[in-house]
Nucleic acid binder design. Structure first.
Length: 557
RNA sequence: GGCCUGUUGGUGAAGUGGUUAACACAUAGCCCUCUCAAGGCUACAUUCAUGGGUUCAAACCCCAUACAGGUCACCA
């Protein structure tokens, strides 16, 4: 028996050689310096912040260099697969406005000449490469079962030796071709393991784009390459796919750093040029007990992407945040170039922090607040409506019914040099402006008057104001002068400085008078500019709301 | 336990032999002001995990220690 016989027995259906695939997927014709990256999620759960971060960076790097960014689905783990996994990935990518040049673009479609881009559809390709390895004594079938592996491990632990399937512990590595042939012929189950050529006493240097030079012992573990179900594990798929798809840069989490020696060994065995690696520091989260740990989808709602969607935080803001933690000079650049977008920024691996960073929701919210403040009223309206349509249909109806009016509300103190910054997300808009809609206002009966809360005093202030002072067409200065006149006429002080110096000389100040008007109009002591609000509400509604407030206050009285 | 990575304020961090240790978020105070938001100003690390060393000079170089994280699957 020869290796060729064994290989033929193991892979009876392979009729393409690795040279054939080399021709079928030739090197890409791209401009000098173009970077090919990919996002390669596995459909085993919802996408989270960590995924999104590497996608955003990978997309950015490819775009910056006129390269290619593609989506590959790593679905080799049948056991952990979730229902509609691929659809969920596509949806999330779509939601976050990430655009791939090729790869999987919908549940049923793929685009590009380097496919298929779903790993379970690439079995025959992996088989050809695995067969090559068997033929060339670079891999071997292993018949050890779980118990045997477990025994070896315990044995190694007991003797304080390095754990793993290697050297003398690699039982099947030393099996004769004939024996292996017979076992397979008789239907024995097996996996395929790499026949590692590495020497643990020798060092290998990984020149990582973000970590710098990292020295590891060479890999000498005979890792599993193909599982007993014939499907490859990540390590082998990474070799075949990223070589054949001509990926130039691998962006992945730090958790992959320690298996990179194995990956490098695989590339070396085939004589392929290895890609450049960028191992990204993990996104951490501070726990209740003060310790740092990996951001977890289960424990941290803000780790899942749906959280931002449900909160109505604009995707641009999330990307802005991710970019500020990805490139340490981004935030400053953005400050100096307020009119530019992420697209204008040049990403650099050198400006990536090597350490993991804490995920700071507070900061993200602040970025979101600034982002929203720069939008115009139509944009805010469209975002708010899109959010409400999905999560608050009653509010969505109001927004649609009063489109122009709503936009006018959103425009209060907006399109100006120093706009109001009061919304960090679209889900909080309703809580801030609900009183502008009669439908919502009527449901609320609680008034939060402050200093002046005597029903008769309130009645006097409001009636005098509406009867003798308020004119719908007054400009802002005239309006405020009238408020001051009203203030003085009732024995309050219209000059705040004067009032602060002699508070006892007056019944109160213009601030107290304004508060009465404000609360009567909105029930709240905190609102945007009173003048703008009054104008939007109109005199008729002012009068109605004043009467209603007086009535309710008297009743409580 | 072995191997690897990281450690600058409450948080994100700039910084690579000589700086008042940037900047941003958060927090506190003041100012502005009809409230809120915003804005302006100010405060917030005598110190860069700890201990040694090299040097005229160290957060930056070297060594050790501590702590945190990752990895050691027929998961990715």
């Amino acid at each position: 028996m020869t290796r060729k016989d064994l290989a033929d027995l193991m892979f009876p259906n392979v009729n393409m050689t690795i040279e054939d695939y080399e021709k079928k997927y030739p090197p890409r014709k791209l401009p000098e310096g173009a970077i090919v990256t990919r996002c390669a999620p596995s459909p085993t759960g919802l996408l989270h912040m960590g995924n999104l971060r590497s996608f955003v960076i990978a997309e950015k790097v490819a775009k910056d260099t006129n390269g290619i960014f593609y989506l590959r689905i790593e679905d080799t783990d049948g056991k952990r697969a979730i229902e509609n996994g691929i659809k969920k990935i596509i949806d999330a990518i779509h939601n976050f406005d990430i655009h791939v040049d090729e790869g999987v673009i919908s549940e049923t479609e793929q685009k590009g000449a380097y496919g298929p881009y779903i790993q379970t559809q690439r079995k025959e390709i992996y088989d050809a490469y695995a067969k090559y390895m068997i033929e060339n004594d670079l891999a071997y079938p292993c018949f050890c079962n779980e118990e045997e592996i477990e025994d070896t491990r315990k044995n190694q632990e007991g003797r304080k030796e390095r754990i793993g399937y290697y050297g003398k512990y690699a039982h099947c590595r030393h099996m004769s071709i004939d024996e292996a042939y017979d076992k397979i012929k008789n239907g024995a189950k097996y996996v395929i393991r790499i026949k590692s050529q590495g020497n643990y006493d020798k060092r290998i240097v990984i020149d990582d784009l973000v970590k710098g030079k990292v020295v590891f012992p060479e890999n000498d573990i005979d890792h599993v390459l193909i599982k007993s179900d014939g499907i490859p594990v990540y390590h082998f798929a990474h070799l075949v796919d990223d070589h054949l798809m001509r990926t130039t840069h691998i962006l992945r989490g730090e958790e992959w750093l320690s298996s990179t020696p194995l990956h490098l060994e695989l590339f070396k065995m085939f004589g392929f040029k290895p890609p450049k690696y960028a191992h990204l520091g993990l996104v951490l989260k501070i726990d209740d007990d003060g310790s740092k740990r990996k951001l977890s989808k289960r424990k941290d709602p803000e780790a899942s992407l749906s959280y931002y969607h449900e909160k109505g935080i604009p995707v641009e803001a999330v990307k802005l945040y991710l970019m500020t933690i990805a490139n340490t000079n981004f935030e400053e650049w953005m400050d100096h170039n307020p009119d530019k977008t992420i697209d204008d920024f040049k990403f650099s691996f050198k400006k990536m922090s090597a350490s993991g960073s804490l995920f700071d929701l507070e900061k993200l919210l602040n970025i979101s607040k600034n982002y929203i403040s720069k939008l115009n009223k139509e944009e805010v309206y469209n975002y708010a409506l899109a959010w409400a349509s999905e999560f608050d249909s009653d509010f969505a109806k109001l927004l649609q019914k009063y489109k122009e009016y709503s936009m006018a509300i959103f425009n209060i103190e907006r399109e100006q040099k120093k706009p109001r910054k009061d919304y960090a997300s679209f889900s909080e808009i309703k809580n801030q402006i609900w009183y502008m809609y009669d439908e919502l206002f009527e449901e609320n009966l609680e008034y939060h008057f402050a200093k002046i809360n005597d029903a008769f005093e309130i009645e006097k202030i409001l009636n005098t104001y509406i009867d003798e002072y308020y004119e719908e067409n007054d400009d802002k200065d005239t309006w405020f002068n009238k408020i001051k006149s009203l203030t003085d006429s009732l024995g309050y002080c219209s000059n705040m400085k004067e009032y602060k110096q002699n508070p006892d000389k007056y019944k109160g100040s213009v601030a107290d008078i304004s508060t009465v008007i404000r609360v009567a109009l909105t029930t709240s002591t905190m609102t945007p500019d009173l003048y703008e609000i009054s104008k939007l509400l109109g005199k008729k509604r002012l009068s109605e709301r004043f009467n209603r407030a007086i009535k309710i206050m008297k009743k409580i009285g």
